[in-house]
């Protein structure tokens, strides 16, 4: 509806353009929400018994890790977790993309492998973790296997659909020009499937992020997931909450400023296929 509420009627004081942009895009509401949430949080933690165990106040949480940062442990944990995520994702991409392309090139092959990939995808990486722990113990290899397994399937699936969505005419056109199979894959199939590859990568890395956190908790390898889990064990609830907030923030930053732009860019620039 075209109405605007009266509170937005033009006032005598004309605020700056930037401020208006900020409020128009919901900045004010977000600010209000954050302040409100912090307030509710502090109130709750000030009335419940034993807040340091159940819900430490925001400031307590904020200052809880001074010591950790000071000792350099905290950056270490974040670094470890990110390292696992990045290496695991690279492994996932490195295996998933060629795999998806190979499967997608031939209709018979892709029809053949689709169901079994579906089956393995529905066993989550976390569920196979106990098996792998039996095989390799609580080692770094175990964590990486879980991450790889988790990231692999969404990536391979998307690449497969991407390859299959490239219109046949492009391939045929290349054929009539006498291009080799390698040429066709490099010049038509890969660029054509790129938007899907980007989507798959974002999805796969998102899954991998959860897998890293859970994997660290379960195998006891040092990192953010391990940290919040041990903090809970040793009754440092303030550190648990801080760790959770960090986990959320890191993911949002990663998604907003790395993965999403890459995805949007590839779709716009390379998209043979309009979506």
């Amino acid at each position: 509806m075209a109405t605007t509420s009266p509170s937005l009627a033009p006032s005598r004081v004309v605020p700056s353009r930037r401020w208006r942009r900020f409020t128009k895009e919901g900045g004010a509401e977000i600010l209000l929400l954050i302040v409100g949430l912090l307030l509710v949080w502090s109130i709750i933690s000030s009335i419940i018994p034993n807040p340091s165990r159940y819900l430490p106040a925001p400031l307590v949480v904020f200052f809880s890790s001074g010591e950790l940062i000071w000792k350099g442990l905290f950056p270490n944990y974040v670094g470890q977790t990110l390292y696992r995520l990045i290496l695991g994702s690279i492994l996932g991409l490195g295996v998933g993309i060629p795999f998806g392309v190979l499967l997608g090139l031939n209709r018979t092959v892709s029809d053949m492998f689709y169901p079994i990939m579906n089956f393995f995808q529905s066993i989550s990486g976390i569920a196979i973790l106990p098996i792998i722990v039996v095989w390799w113990g609580n080692s770094e290899k175990t964590v990486f296997t879980v991450i790889l397994y988790t990231a692999l399937f969404p990536i391979a699936f998307n690449v497969l659909s991407g390859v299959r969505s490239v219109p046949r005419i492009y391939v045929n056109a290349m054929r009539t020009l006498g291009a080799s199979n390698y040429c066709i894959v490099r010049d038509v199939i890969l660029p054509g499937a790129l938007p899907y590859i980007a989507t798959g990568a974002r999805l796969g890395i998102g899954f991998a992020w959860r897998a890293v956190i859970a994997g660290e908790m379960l195998t006891g390898r040092r990192g953010l997931g391990w940290w919040i889990f041990t903090a809970q064990d040793t009754d440092h609830t303030d550190q648990v909450i801080l760790g959770m907030l960090m986990i959320g923030c890191i993911w949002i930053l990663l998604d907003r400023y790395a993965l999403r732009p890459i995805e949007a860019d590839t779709i716009q620039r390379w998209g043979l296929v309009q979506r």
């Binding site: 908790m217 903090a231 907030l245 986990i247 949002i252």
Partner: peptide, 30 residues
């Protein structure tokens, strides 16, 4: 409601990105 949506959309994004397993330690405390 646009205003509620504006406020809750980022909250939803945030909650989704820590949802799942990261809540576990806190849930065990509670």
């Amino acid at each position: 409601n646009r205003r509620i949506a504006n406020a809750l959309e980022p909250l939803g994004i945030f909650a989704n990105s820590i949802s799942g397993i990261a809540w576990l330690p806190l849930a065990i405390v509670w």
